[in-house]
Write a protein that binds this DNA or RNA. Sequence first.
DNA 1: GGGAATGAAAA
DNA 2: TTTTCATTCCC
Length: 893
Amino acid sequence: MKGSSRNKDHSTEGEGTGKRPKRKCLQWHPLLAKKLLDFSEEEEEEEEDEDIDKVPLLGADSLEQDADETEDEESEQRARRPMNAFLLFCKRHRSLVRKEHPRLDNRGATKILADWWAVLDPKEKQKYTDMAKEYKDAFMKANPGYKWCPTTNKPVKTQTSTVTNRKKLWAFASDATKDLPSPRKVTTKSEEMPQLNFGMADPTQMGGLSMLLLAGEHALTAQEVSSSTCQSDATNSTEACQKSSLFQFAEISSSTSQPGVPGAVKQTEESALFQFAEMSSNTSQLSSPELVKLCGKSALFQLARMCLASEGVKVKEPGKTKVEAPEDAGGEVLKEMEVELEKAIKDSCKGKIEQLEIKRMQNRDDTKAEESETAKCGDFTSLAMENSPFERNDNTKDHMCCSPELSIADMNIFGLKPEKIKKKKKKNKLDRHTSEKSTPKKPCKKRQSSESDIESVMYTIEAVAKGDWGAERLADTPRKKPRPVSNVKESMLDTKSPKKKVKSKDKKTSKEKPTETTKESKPPDFLSIAASKEEPCEASDNIKVEPLTPTEEVVPQSLPEQVKTEDSDCVKKIETCGSRKSERSCKGALYKTLVSEGMLTSLRANVDRGKRSSGKGNSSDHEGCWSEENWAFSQSGTSGNKKLKRPRPKEEFVFGLAKLEEEFEKKFNSLPQYSPITFDRKNSSVPRKKRKVGSGSSEHPKSNKGGPLLAPSVAYMIVEAWTPFSSGVQCKGSSILSEDRISSESAWKNKISISALNTPEPAMMHEPLVGSQKRKARKTKITHLVRTADGQVSPAGGTLEEKLKELPQSTLQKTQSAETDCNSECSRNAETEENHSITSDMPAVSAFFSLAALAEVAAMENVHRSQRATPLPHDGQPNEMSQAPVLISCADQ
DNA sequence: GGGAATGAAAA
DNA sequence: TTTTCATTCCC
């Protein structure tokens, strides 16, 4: 009754959409959700404050379960066992069933679904099975210790009263080992998680540094590649660069995600990417790419100068510099530095720098100048060199609290002591941002200054690692600094990137800016993100991390040496900066290109599509894969938007969740949906139970209803068209169907996407048949199908090809050729061969897959076109199949 | 919270 | 072989 509101009606859209059962907060990925929740909680606190007491628990998710949670246990508890194939099927088709049978309640729907399931072609089932398996695998990876049945043990939950009813149990084998669930704990507690699959906790806790580490590691490899590629060409390689960049991002994201910490990492990454995108976009907007380069150079140049200056300073007064207190101790040095900086800055950008004394004054004045400058050098702002130092000084003075050591270390890390100093100012602002985004946790509310320092450092590190530099900083700047400077920056930002403001915390920012007092408010951000403790941890982490992770060139180098060998550091730093810069430029260029090409847009669109899920709010995490993909998407998506506003922290979380969900959905969506009609027929023909042979129902389901499923008519048609083929073989052209699929496929990282997802085979008929019969059936069906596809019109198989071709024309824009190719090939293959494992191509593709999905698709398409260019005709050679970008899997009965 | 379905895992 | 529990959501 109560539920009546919901009625079947809306459910139409998706299972996913609306449904949130009361209890279950997180359908798919409890784990992620929890993790995310953790973050989100914090954020929420910030935003909402009201709500959560302190409980870090899950504010959001918890819907009902909150109670249960003590974080750990709960988290564990939270994990829900992965859905099995049937459940996936149900989820996917329930809405359809409901549409057809609005009055049916779920039970009835479930029965129908069961019928459908029974009828469903084995192949089709296989897809779901595969997906389920994948899902499970991912889940298990995420939750190594997860047990389906807690069995008696389940001691776990006892405590919390709530014990999750349902969830209850699953005891994790060993808490320690079990990562997933525990991760949260770890995070909270500080235990270390071995990482595990997800090990989110660590990175999160680690904060930016950890992030850096993770990202850095990935980045290193990725970057290397990218750098090499990028270096080769600027524009020409653009595509290559793009790919590389995408790839890198993907890897980074994936890598980070894998390790764990979906939430934080994602955010950070996203932010980074986003920033990147913004950077590029901004720069592009503001000025030509050249400008960008110039700016970057200038920035780099400045940095270099900074380093040099710092070196000099160090040489002169190492001790002081280290200790820092820039103003206090190294007034002279500072001045020198300032002078140099000013020069450099002026050189590059007109003056932003101010002397220590005048800093603020100038800063204010500069504000105006900055605006103008901004246009000139976007990066510059990003560097935030100027202001930050000053502020830093101030801050340092004010509070060096946290650990001067850290600050120093940080400085060392960067290799840019001076920079750090400078950065601080921005950092303050940035910090918020950074902390929020990149490192949710760290910040201690209390001392901004200290935080700012650390954060700034971390931020910079992260930025460096990411190569975001400018972008992040830009974003950050606005936020944190309460000071007038911030205002200036803001103005800068405004002009440059309204987005950022929009982004996440503009609101807060605004608040913050007004006055330092706001700092507190700021802290909330941090706080929200980070637990109170983190600071020390962070610091330590940072230090530790640095050496550990070579996140990026800069960091690693600097890290080890940093502490003592400053000189070398500086040099190195400079170099690194340069390298990064190149990377950045490449990335930026790539993004730009992507944007221009519209790829980002498309990605974004995909994301948007997925959004509906966002409403759900559930996040699913389970697999690294998904999460990774999500990230990738999110990143790409955000970047694509260009300016999309970055969601606020909360939003980000939500976003993260949403993204996860989206991804999941994408994947999920990738699963073939079958039109009810088809089932109906079958059902009708065969009264529920699986009818095995099927027979023939020929008909085309497609007529309409089916439409709802995949892509509208087109997709559906395609499906049908494919079906025939699929009957014998499954064709999976990645691009084949609708974008959704593509996206979804992309989403799937590796194999899954390829292997299973693909083809939607509506048909269910043939399966049971045996050998020759099957073949006959297939052919027959095929003809039928073909006909149906056409609209029932064309009879014979000959039409198939035509239809296939037509189909693409009709709807498919992109992969038409590919599809056709696939189809033809598939058909052939089906006839001749049935089993084709996934193509060899996959592996390569798989690598990028998540992120680059679109890019890949495009590339693949291009390749196809170029290579095959509608070769298709029947003869497709099996070999081609393998080659063909489109994956075709032929399942043989 | 039960229930309708299926399936996987554990006992 | 039996239990649990995964999803969905009305009742």
